[in-house]
Structure formats: C-alpha cells, structure tokens
Design a protein around this nucleic acid. Structure first.
Lengths: 220, 220
DNA sequence: CTATACCTTAATGTATACATTGATGTATGC
DNA sequence: GCATACATCAATGTATACATTAAGGTATAG
C-alpha cells in the first residue's frame, strides 16, 4: 500500500535533475532516453513531462524532444513581479487573520535561523531559511491557489539562485525587512504588512535584475 | 499537415462540456467513458485530464474517476483576490509602457461595446466584451506568465458567471471604472491605473461574494 | 448487530505495439 | 550552384494489452 507511482518518481527525478543542473536549460531530451535513464517506460515519463510543462519547467516539442525551459533575465523580472504582488497579498491576509504569537512560531524561527546563518557566513543555510520564511508567509495567507502559484514561480527562481547566491551582496537589509513584516503581521496591521513586504520584494527584484544584466545573463 | 492532435481535441471538448455545464462540478467520470464519448482511446483523454488538472478544472482521483472540480464561494473569493492583484499590476505596467492611442484601440473598442450592450440589455454580450477588456488589459501588461495565470483563474470564474450574471445588479458603475482605467493608462499614470483597477476588482469581488453567500451558493 | 479480515473486481497505472508525421538528407531539374 | 520535390526514418501520438491496487462487498467471529 505504498502508493508511490512511477509518475511521481519521474516528476521528482526530473525536478531534481533540473535543479541540480544535470539537465541544462535549453537542452532537449527524448522521451525514450529519459525513460531508459529512469528505468521505466515512456508512459509515466511522458505524463510527468506534461505536468512539468504545466508548471513551466519544460516544453514538449513534437519530434525534437522534451526541452528544459530556459529562463531569461526578462523572465526573472516577470516572475519577481508576480511574486511581489502575491506574497504581499498573503502578508496582508495573514495580518488580517489575527494570528497569535504561537501561530507565528514557524515564521519567527525562520527569521532567527536566517540571522544565525548569516553570522556564520552560511549562505546556503540562509537561502534555505529564506525559502522557509516565504513559504510559511504564503501559507498563513490561507489561499490555496495563491500558494500553488507562488510555489511554481519560486521553483523557477530557485534555478537562477544557484547562479546569483554567491555574487549578490550579503542579505543583511533583507533580514531587517523580514522582521518588519513579521511585526506587522503580529500586530494585525494588514496594510503595513503588505507595503513592507512589497518594498522588500521590489528591492530584491531590482537587485537581482541588475545583477543578471550586469553578468550578461541571457538564459539559464 | 493539419496537426490537430486528439489531446487538443479532448482538452477543447472537455473544457466546452465543463463550461456548458454538461459535466457538472463534483461529478466523477471514468476515463473509459469519456474516451468512448469522445471517440478516442484512453491515452489522449488521460493526457488531457492531466493538463486540465494542472489548471484546476478537474482532479484525477485514483479508482474514482476524473472529478470536475467544484468551486466554492471561498474559492471564488480566493480567485478574485488573485485576479485583483495581478490585473492591477498589469494595468500599472501597461501605463508605464507608454502606449499610443492606436495601441489602445482594442481596449477602447471593448469599452464601447460594453456600453452598447448595456443600453440594449444584452448581458451576454456585455460579459463577452468585459472578458475582452480584461484579456486585452493583461496582454498590454506584457508579462506572459501573468497572462497565463490570469487566464486560468478567469476560466474558473467563468463557470460561476453563468449563475451570477442574471442576478447581479446591472454593471453600470463597472463601465465607469473601465473608462477610468483606460484614461490612466493612456496618460501613462501607472499608480492611478493600478489603484483604479484594484478598487474596481475589489468592488466586484465583494459584490460577487455577497451574492453567492446570499444565495446559499455552496459549490458549483 | 457490529467489527474485522478477506476477496472480488473494476478502474487505474504502466508497458508495449503500432500509426502518424515532420525533419533531414538526396536526387533531380533548372 | 540553387531550389524544389521526394524519400527516408526516427520520434512522437495513439491504441491496446496487461499488472496493480484499493473500494466495496461478503463472510465469519465476537
């Protein structure tokens, strides 16, 4: 009664290979190849590819294979725009929900962890805690569809972060922003939560786009 | 070289049946049944179902069939929240883009058509023109991912509109709002375009949710 | 009468065989 | 040398056969 299908395995494996950079953006892969590599038939691989296509991670191009979607600087800018709006909405809704301090424990822990990681120059750890913060923030907004969309968008950002994490300035301001958002939510101040997070994301976007432009980043 | 696959046919047919109410929300349908009804094998039907699942129109439930996703009043509220933020962003970006009057022709035409339909009490025609307005607005925002998300969300709204269109108040204020958004875009005033459209959508949301609550709308 | 364990079976999940198609190479005519 | 038409064939799109699984029924025990 394990109930873990090959399709799920294929989805997980393909995602992992994409995020690890094993399948490079822009590259094409035949269904048959991938099926053999994953030790299953074409059917589940194809179904997995269809799902990933719906999330924008790959494109099925008839006769040319499954293409790993490239992500341009323009794409990043578009994605950040969407994240900015939707996460800010979530922050506002979270503030309106009137959560208690104990409800906000996970959020607070993520902030603490980010601080700790920063003081140890552990950028990977920081990125992981940052992910946790944003994921929890969106969850608190209580809008299942919004959570889904944001998680798909963040997947795409994740692919570029491998490139940017170590060339971006230390995320010190970032953490002050997170605390401000937390405070606004804890105090039930929806519009401050919204605006603070909005400014935070917008700043991050401008920084990232400038970084990508500067480094001639044209796809990956 | 027609190149219209069975999967595409299946997607189109299923969408049509869902929007027409032939497949009622909450109902289950076996892959085999649908395949027979559409005159094809299970494979393309299944692939179509996977795609529609990614868009939230159906759910594949092992051994119980393909379920047409029900949409609750809460879902509607969530969806409108998302539409409000993303369309407002598109309006702001459209204003920033500095479009000329001729670039905005389609948008203006939609507004004119809405007026014309209203004066003839043609609610269906109005709804169609309203759709066109919102679709064009988003297109002008020039963010392909945003357009995709909005179009998926609007598909879900469309299913409820059959119910609400004829019990809602006449959309007179609505048209004044559209004109105001148009003017802000034409004048390149991004923040006014954003705020005006935001208020418009928020108002529509509140009205719709109140309507659905009042009519004991609990899913469909 | 209720609960539990088992069994049946229908529906899905997967593999495979086959049909279709369009990209690419080849030959022919100009 | 260049363009066009045709032939080839590999990869996908589709059908079908088969394996797996869990929902619902049945029987048995308490």
């Amino acid at each position: 009664m394990g109930a873990i299908s090959n399709v799920e395995r294929a989805v997980a494996a393909l995602r992992q290979m994409i995020f690890a950079g094993e399948l490079t953006p822009g590259s094409d892969h035949l269904e048959t190849e991938l099926a053999e590599k994953l030790g299953m038939s074409r059917t589940p691989v194809r179904e997995a590819a269809l799902m990933l296509q719906a999330q924008g991670l790959v494109e099925l191009r008839p006769r040319r294979g499954i293409r790993i979607s490239p992500v341009s600087a323009q794409d990043m800018s578009d994605i950040y725009d969407i994240l900015t709006e939707l996460e800010s909405l979530a922050a506002a809704r979270a503030a309106e929900a009137g959560y208690s301090v104990s409800d906000l424990e996970t959020l607070a822990a993520a902030i603490t962890d980010m601080d700790a990681c920063l003081s140890h120059d552990d950028l990977r750890g920081w990125a992981e805690a940052d992910d946790r913060f944003h994921r929890e923030l969106v969850r608190l907004g209580r809008n299942a569809r919004l959570s889904m969309i944001v998680s798909v968008m963040r997947d795409q950002v994740r692919r570029a972060r491998a490139t940017t994490l170590f060339i971006r300035p230390a995320p010190v301001q970032s953490n002050a922003d997170h605390r401000a958002v937390y405070d606004a939510i804890a105090q039930g101040d929806a519009s401050r939560a919204h605006d603070t997070h909005h400014a935070h994301r917008r700043h991050a976007r401008d920084m990232l786009v400038a970084l990508l432009d500067k480094h001639q980043f044209h796809g990956l």
